[in-house]
Measured scan of single mutants.
Amino acid sequence: MMITLRKLPLAVAVAAGVMSAQAMAVDFHGYARSGIGWTGSGGEQQCFQTTGAQSKYRLGNECETYAELKLGQEVWKEGDKSFYFDTNVAYSVAQQNDWEATDPAFREANVQGKNLIEWLPGSTIWAGKRFYQRHDVHMIDFYYWDISGPGAGLENIDVGFGKLSLAATRSSEAGGSSSFASNNIYDYTNETANDVFDVRLAQMEINPGGTLELGVDYGRANLRDNYRLVDGASKDGWLFTAEHTQSVLKGFNKFVVQYATDSMTSQGKGLSQGSGVAFDNEKFAYNINNNGHMLRILDHGAISMGDNWDMMYVGMYQDINWDNDNGTKWWTVGIRPMYKWTPIMSTVMEIGYDNVESQRTGDKNNQYKITLAQQWQAGDSIWSRPAIRVFATYAKWDEKWGYDYTGNADNNANFGKAVPADFNGGSFGRGDSDEWTFGAQMEIWW
């Protein structure tokens, strides 16, 4: 008995050590931004985005507190085989008060198993909700290839000249389909599951310092038995992507060409959309029709120009041509140079221009935006974070068209359509004006 009692403290210590080691193995990653800002004409900070554009130049032009908190852990490992559990909870508030209630979004919860298939060394099996191989332009917060959501897949299969990845994910639309009631009355209240099937071939070395990635995505509306879509709904579509990445000037340049059809055009990033119906009456549900095509040509990157200068840049042309004439032509160009006074202090400027032409009206909206920021960051790279910055932003815009969301679809035949700025004596778009804002912001990723 005495021997047992003497061994007990040692056993407890060993158990505590094991539990401590396991606790220390938890990975904590994430992203956050928050700050305070004012508008020159009075009131809180207002942000500037061109009507019809899918993004905006973000430096000194973000008006919310946003965070993603990721917890993950390698829960099992034997040799080169392992299982990893990953989670991500995100939230966004308007940064107007101390207490701002919000419903967090559970954006990731997945398990990734590496090297589980003997004859596919280096590959990963995964299932669950996941940010899946996302491609974006940081300076405009624009995701041009992103099929994230609940799904499953097999990735990084070594095929000799590259890595092959296969995945299936889902994005549902509210009110996407109906069941038959009586007297030809349909009640569009059932969600429609939109499935996306993704095939990618990446890391193909085609020139010194250059790699090529090719991808095909097929999206479709997956209806339940005895349900139907509204007439004209976009049932399926394709997205084709080619991306060349070149190492240059201690950074990279990415050149991207994408072509999409029908349900893959509205978001243009790989998620299927077009079966959703915002109104019970299918007579007024025309606005979900996105049959047509999209072409996107994009070049972006980040480079170092000597010891003291870094720069991000982007140039993009996007043409969404829809059968219902509600598409757009959008082109944007911008730069973000950074001058480093010390390894932790810099001055950053961002200059961006957007131009969006309405397919329906032929009119154009444009905006110039310039931001000057003094910044303190954890390192001497344009990617170094955390960063604390004080900024001043000036924007000038001239908008000739907007979307008509007055009333509702039952009493407005133009609901959701592009109209000229002065349509029917109204005021659509943001008109011709300018404004400036100033404030302070922190940004961090880890």
Rank of each mutant, 00 (worst) to 15 (best):
M1K: 12
T4S: 13
L5P: 12
R6L: 12
R6C: 06
V12D: 10
A15S: 07
A15P: 13
A16E: 03
A16T: 02
V18L: 05
M19I: 09
A23V: 02
A25P: 02
V26G: 05
G30A: 04
Y31H: 06
A32S: 07
R33L: 06
S41N: 01
Q46R: 04
G52D: 00
S55T: 15
Y57F: 15
E62D: 07
G72A: 15
K77E: 09
G79R: 14
K81T: 09
K81R: 15
F85Y: 09
N88I: 03
N88S: 07
A90T: 03
Q95K: 15
Q95E: 06
E100G: 01
A101T: 10
A105T: 06
A105D: 15
G113S: 12
K114R: 08
K114I: 06
N115Y: 11
I117N: 12
L120M: 14
P121Q: 15
T124P: 06
A127S: 10
H135N: 11
V137F: 10
D141Y: 15
P150H: 02
G151S: 12
A152T: 12
L154P: 06
L154M: 09
N156I: 15
G160C: 15
G162V: 10
G162A: 14
K163N: 15
A167T: 02
R170S: 11
S172F: 02
G175S: 04
S179P: 03
A181T: 07
Y188F: 14
Y188H: 03
T189N: 13
T189P: 15
T192S: 15
A193E: 10
A193V: 05
N194I: 12
E205V: 10
T211S: 07
G215D: 00
N222S: 08
N222I: 04
S234L: 10
G237S: 00
G237V: 09
V248D: 01
F252C: 04
F252I: 01
D262N: 06
T265P: 02
K269R: 05
K269T: 15
S275A: 04
G276D: 03
D280Y: 12
D280E: 09
D280N: 07
N281S: 08
I303S: 06
G315C: 04
Y317S: 07
Q318R: 01
Q318H: 01
Q318L: 00
D319Y: 07
N321I: 07
N321T: 06
N324K: 04
N326S: 04
G327C: 10
G327D: 01
T328N: 13
Y339F: 05
W341C: 06
T342R: 02
M345L: 02
I351F: 10
I351L: 07
N355I: 11
E357D: 10
R360L: 06
D363Y: 11
N366I: 06
L372I: 11
A373E: 15
G379V: 12
S381N: 02
W383R: 06
S384T: 09
R385G: 11
P386L: 00
A387S: 12
R389C: 01
A392S: 10
K396N: 07
E399G: 02
W401L: 06
G402S: 00
A409S: 10
N414T: 10
P420H: 10
S427I: 15
D432N: 13
D432A: 09
G439C: 14
